[in-house]
Structure formats: structure tokens, C-alpha cells
Design a binder for these strands. Structure first.
Length: 542
RNA sequence: CCGCCUCUAGCUCAAUGGCAGAGCAGUGGACUCUUAAUCCAUUGGUUCUGGGUUCGAAUCCCAGGGGGCGGACCA
């Protein structure tokens, strides 16, 4: 994983709270007691288990849990009343001068991240969702019994405490604790408080541990949430209605991708997980809903990479009486608003270049970009053979069944995408690669379609929607023919969708935005796994 | 599916053919203003798995597994 320099800096700054992750030890009951294994034939095998630092640590903590209940302490109590979260505490008292004692009493709850024991005085750093604050625990204040309980706490335990707000002589905001309650005993350690958790495999498999200790990981998902809620606000303000459409599809349409196949038992039929939201949402435009959107999970049975996860999140919207120009405007509004809401600025640094999203986004026709790249005019009206020859001359291998537009698109992808750093609308895709887009009003070989590229990644795709049922049928039939000719990703004829169009779909503009990729852009990360809480991985061998 | 890299204590990492180590975490002890607290002592190993080469393998070779990156695939 290559992170931008800025982000690496953040990681280091927060490194003190990275976690230690641990393999599963054997259940305690299966760990032989030391005298059971001594001298036995099995010693050499079992020694590895008991000898492990983890197994011993878990056993110690589990024994502690077992000893708490008889003494009247519940290690997993039901609830705790807090008066503030730690962000509240810091914003209300963060400006106290060093050495201040207040009479302000608070109750807070958090996880113990650091412990500094200096005999009759213990400092603990606790963390909750809002931040972190130091606990100042004096034996003289909390009493001998309470102090002994605090001594028994481990890193990772959840505690609730009550006390007064103060600052230390050095100025550290603290809570002088007069009562502490164990809220949940951690029996697995958070070992390395400094070097922490960097192993990507463990970070993704045990995301809970990543989130506990890696503030940068938490930030990625705060950014993601801010983007999604920003989208909902922008769309609500523009009069859009949020809807939910089926995930289980009889036909996987709306995009070119291989679907996941599943089976419904009661209906005894094959179903597909959706590869796009498009066709159902446009049915709703036919129904007169005028402005609809859905933020939903999409499934594509294809490769996994830093830019692809088999399940990912797409926002699609459709607006009646609008065309592609309106949709490009909405795209800019959605994304600049999201940047403002998630980051507080529209200025991003992309590959070392400062980019202000608020500046107008350039538009370039796909055929112009591709033509410039090869130094020859490319147009889907040209003979396939001529296009294929030019493409091959420029290192693009051409499959036999490809239509002219497909060849131009491949040239574009091979030679132009990599240079699209700042937000750029690539427009006017050929008809043969755009079966649901309306033909361009000035060129019958092109469509009124655009894709948004930022940092060489496709972020969004939109067009003036094809609403002529006769033309849509012939486009579908071309798709089906291509599929039958061996192009597995091509579509089929969706008769119900055609029936809907026959009822009349108003002129409509539509948009799809890859939410994960937008989150990557605004979070400043280079892997989609950094913005998906539980990315798809091979099953863990346990 | 292909190529390259990688896998050592709970975590972060050393040891490059010759006794498997450190820091942190843990354990025992000291300490009432610490900030990765500090100081003293200390437990902990299937070096991913299985073969092979060698007097000797964490290290070299082969096969397999996990992960990363790149490619393929992905409008």
C-alpha cells in the first residue's frame, strides 16, 4: 500500500495507539496445566500452547474475571450513565490553565489505552468515540479498595469513572477520579501501544482491533459517513426521494459485469445479485416519481484490486426533464459539497498537485482524447479494420468481436486515463458501448454520456437516458447478440424494462457515483480496502 | 489466472549457512504530576506448512498456504 506522504505522517502521529492482534489461543479448558504436561509424552506438542505469551495472558485475565464475581464485582455490567463523552470534556474544559482544580463533576466511559503507574498515583489514558482524556487516580482520593481495583485494570478494559475535571502541573486535561467501575473486561491484550498494528491482513480481518488503535482508520470511516450524509442532504435539498429497489434480480442488467448467481428455493429459480441500480430506478421515473436516488450495494463477480471490491456502494440518481448537462452540474455539486462536509475544504492534494474542486471541471470528448493520443483521427463511423489497425499500432490488442466504439474506448483507457488527475468529464462515448444512453443530438455515432475521472480513477458515470422503447429494444438486441457471440459481460433483452418504457419515460438525466472511490479520494487513500470496513478476503485459517 | 515481494514471541522488528534475539505487552518489585512514564528483575518460539540439500537451515532449493503490489479481468 502506498499512501500519500501527508497520510503517512498522520499514521505516525497516531501510532501510539495501534493494537496488538493476536491469534486465537486454545480455549482455556484445553490448555494443559503445567503439572499435567510435565514429563508427559505430549510435552513437546503442548508446550507451544501453554508457553505462548498470549495463552498465558488470556488465562490470567479469565482467571481474574472468574475471581471478580464471587467478590461482588460484575465484570460485564448492564449499563453506565455518563454525563459527557470525551469530546465534550475536551471542548468544555480544554482551555483550563495548567494546575487548575475545578469542582465540575463528570461521569465518563472509555477504553483504557495507556496506563502509567507511579505507586500511589496512576495515570490512565482512556478513549471513547469523541476522543481521549487522562484519568488522574490518586490513592488518597479514591481510597484503598478503589485503588486496588484500578491496579487490576488492564489495557483494553472499558471503565466508567466519576470525578472532577482538572489539569496537571504540565497542563494535561484530566479527570480526578473518585469512583471507577469496570464496564467490560478485555481478556485479549492490546499489546503494542507504540508500534501498533500495521499488518494489512490483520487490520482488515480484525477491523475491530484496527479501529481501536488506529485513529487514521477511524478517520477514513468518518470521512465516508460524512460523504454519504452530505449526498443525502444535497439530494433532499434538490427534491430527490430516496428509494430501495431489489438486490435479487431475475436479469443482471444496467452494466457490463459478471454477476453473482444465487438460487431461491421456494420459487426454485436462479437469481442474480444486482450489478447496477439503473433499470429499476428508471422504472420509477416512468412511474412519475420524477427525482429518485438510491445508495446501495452492488455486486460484481470480478477481480479484487486496490480499486475493486466484489461488493461496493453506488449512488444512482435519475431526474426527469433533465439531460446530461444538468447531471454534470449535479455531479459537481454533490462532490464539492461532500468535500466541504467531510474535509471542510474543496482543495485537495492529488499526486502532489493542489486541486480546487470548486473550479470548473474540464470536459473532453473521448474520441478527441483518444485521437490525440494516437495522432490520428478516431471516430466510431470509421471501418473496424482501420480502427483496429491504429489501435494495434499503439499497443492495444483488439478482440475480433469488438465494435468500433469499443476499440476507441480501449485506446482511451490505455493511453488517456492515466493523465486525468484533476476532475475531468470525459464525454460523448460511442453508442456501441453505451446501450442505455441516448444518442448525441449532434452525432449519431456518439451518446450524450460522460464519465468523471479523478486521479486516473473513474468516479462517476452519467447520461441523457435513452427513453425510446423501439431504439432501446434494438440496443438490447445488439447486446444479446454480442453475448451470444461469446462476450460474457454483455446484457440481455429486459422485456419488463421495455414494457415500462412503452408507458413513456419523460426526458431524463441519470448519474451513478462510486461511493467507495469518492471516499478514497477524499480520505486520501490508495486502496479501496481502507474505506470498506470489512473488505472481501479469503477465509482465515483458524 | 500470471509476475515480483513478503511471512521470526501477543505486537513492531533483528539475526544470511554456525547457540533464535531486542523493544513494547505480560509477570514480580520501587515510585503521589506521569505523557510511549522511568528504574530493577523476569516468563514467553511449530522461525506459515510439508519435503529436500547440508556436518549444520529462520537463512539455500522444491511444493503448498496467507498477505501485499503490479498485470489480466473490470464499459
Amino acid at each position: 500500500m502506498r499512501l500519500p506522504v501527508v497520510v503517512v505522517g498522520r499514521l505516525e502521529r497516531h501510532a501510539r495507539y495501534r493494537a496488538v492482534i493476536v491469534d486465537d489461543g486454545a480455549p482455556t479448558s484445553e490448555i494443559p496445566a503445567p503439572d499435567e504436561q510435565a514429563g508427559s509424552e505430549a510435552t513437546s506438542i503442548d508446550a507451544g500452547l501453554t508457553g505462548s505469551g498470549l495463552a498465558a495472558e488470556r488465562e490470567r485475565r479469565l482467571n481474574h474475571v472468574a475471581s471478580l464475581r464471587p467478590s461482588g464485582t460484575e465484570p460485564y455490567p448492564y449499563r453506565f450513565d455518563r454525563t459527557h463523552d470525551l469530546g465534550d470534556v475536551r471542548s468544555a474544559w480544554g482551555n483550563l490553565e495548567a494546575g487548575t482544580e475545578t469542582d465540575d463533576r463528570v461521569s465518563i466511559a472509555g477504553r483504557i489505552m495507556l496506563l502509567r503507574d507511579s505507586g500511589k498515583l496512576i495515570f490512565a489514558t482512556v478513549q471513547d468515540r469523541g476522543g481521549e482524556v487522562q484519568l488522574f487516580i490518586s490513592k488518597a482520593v479514591i481510597g484503598d479498595e478503589g485503588f486496588a481495583d484500578v491496579k487490576a485494570l488492564d489495557l483494553g478494559d472499558w471503565v466508567g469513572v466519576t470525578g472532577t475535571v482538572m489539569t496537571t502541573r504540565k497542563g494535561e486535561l484530566s479527570i480526578k477520579v473518585d469512583a471507577a467501575t469496570l464496564l467490560s473486561k478485555a481478556v485479549r491484550p492490546l499489546p503494542d501501544k507504540w508500534h501498533g498494528l500495521t499488518d494489512t491482513d490483520t487490520r482488515f480481518r480484525q477491523r475491530y482491533a484496527d479501529l481501536i488503535v488506529n485513529a487514521e482508520a477511524r478517520r477514513h470511516f468518518e470521512v465516508r459517513h460524512a460523504i454519504i450524509s452530505s449526498f443525502r442532504r444535497t439530494l433532499a435539498d434538490a427534491g430527490f426521494i430516496e428509494v430501495e429497489t431489489p438486490v435479487l434480480h431475475v436479469e443482471a442488467g444496467g452494466a457490463h459485469a459478471r454477476p453473482f448467481v444465487t438460487h431461491h428455493n421456494a420459487l426454485d429459480m436462479q437469481l442474480y445479485l444486482r450489478i447496477a441500480l439503473e433499470l429499476h430506478l428508471k422504472r420509477l421515473i416512468v412511474g412519475g416519481m420524477e427525482r429518485v436516488y438510491e445508495i446501495g450495494r452492488i455486486f460484481r463477480n470480478e477481480g479484487i484490486s486496490t480499486r475493486h471490491n466484489p461488493e461496493f456502494t453506488m449512488m444512482e440518481l435519475y431526474q426527469a426533464f433533465a439531460d446530461w448537462n444538468d447531471v454534470m452540474d449535479i455531479t459537481e455539486l454533490l462532490i464539492t459539497n461532500a468535500a466541504r462536509d467531510a474535509l471542510g475544504t474543496t482543495v485537495l492534494t492529488i499526486r502532489g498537485t493542489s486541486v480546487d474542486l470548486a473550479d470548473p471541471w474540464p470536459r473532453v470528448r473521448m474520441i478527441d482524447a483518444a485521437s490525440e493520443a494516437v495522432g490520428a483521427e478516431l471516430h466510431p463511423s470509421m471501418p473496424v479494420d482501420a480502427l483496429a489497425a491504429i489501435a494495434r499500432d499503439h499497443g492495444v490488442s483488439v478482440a475480433p468481436h469488438w465494435a468500433p466504439g469499443k476499440i476507441i474506448e480501449e485506446v482511451f483507457e490505455a493511453h488517456c486515463e492515466k493523465d486525468l488527475v484533476r476532475p475531468t468529464f470525459v464525454t460523448g462515448h460511442p453508442v456501441d458501448i453505451s446501450p442505455l444512453a441516448r444518442v448525441h443530438r449532434d452525432d449519431p455515432h456518439l451518446t450524450e454520456r460522460f464519465e468523471l475521472f479523478v486521479d486516473s480513477r473513474e468516479l462517476a458515470n452519467g447520461y441523457s437516458e435513452l427513453n425510446d422503447p423501439i431504439e432501446q429494444r434494438s440496443r438490447f438486441e445488439a447486446e444479446q447478440a454480442a453475448k451470444e457471440a461469446g462476450d460474457a459481460e454483455r446484457g440481455t433483452v429486459d422485456e419488463d424494462y421495455l414494457r415500462a418504457l412503452e408507458y413513456g419515460m419523460p426526458p431524463t438525466g441519470g448519474l451513478g457515483v462510486g461511493m467507495d472511490r469518492l471516499a478514497m479520494l477524499l480520505a486520501g487513500v490508495d486502496s479501496i480496502r481502507e474505506v470498506i470496513l470489512f473488505p472481501t478476503l479469503r477465509p482465515e485459517v483458524m
